[in-house]
């Protein structure tokens, strides 16, 4: 049994608490972006593209036989990709209902909430919305 969405958020907040300054924080996000497993080529398609004005995000979702939803993501910008990796870590491999009702607070807690702001237009805000929509759709039996 994987840990719940709230526990995963707490883990990330603890992980980021270790960093002394913004550089270490961003270096970590950049390395998370570099380590994120690449999307399957068949998933890196227009249909999965969330077009931000500043950076582009691809998001794919699959529902496994056990009913859990798996997300994969990619971005052309590495910081966006690192933040997408955190989103995937929090919301992937969870039940559709848990995803749909998740309260995402960890970006606030690690001081990166501005990356979710619409003025950034990096595609992340739309990505989170899309992940929750997948949760809703799969809960409805999709």
């Amino acid at each position: 049994m994987a840990t719940g969405i709230d526990e995963r958020q707490e883990e990330i907040v603890e992980e980021f608490a270790m960093f002394g300054d913004w550089m270490e924080k961003y270096e970590h996000i950049i390395s998370l972006g570099k380590e994120l497993a690449p999307l399957d080529p068949e998933d890196k398609v227009e249909d999965n593209l969330i077009k931000g004005c500043q950076s582009r995000v691809w998001l794919a979702a699959k529902k496994g036989d056990d009913g859990r939803v798996m997300f994969t993501a990619d971005s052309d910008a590495i910081i966006t990709k690192g933040l997408a990796a955190l989103m995937v870590r929090v919301l992937s491999d969870a039940s559709a209902a848990d995803i749909a009702s998740a309260n995402l607070s960890f970006l606030d807690d690690i001081g990166l909430h501005s990356h979710l702001s619409p003025t950034r237009s990096n595609g992340l805000q739309s990505m989170v919305k899309q992940m929750k929509l997948y949760g809703l759709a799969f809960t409805a039996g999709g």
């Binding site: 950049i30 004005c53 500043q54 950076s55 910008a77 966006t80």
Partner: peptide, 21 residues
């Protein structure tokens, strides 16, 4: 290097540039 990444890190240094189209 993606322009968005560069702009984000420059902002951390107090340097305001514009990125995008």
């Amino acid at each position: 290097v993606h322009p968005y990444d560069l702009g984000t890190l420059l902002d951390q240094l107090g340097i305001a540039v514009r990125t995008g189209h």
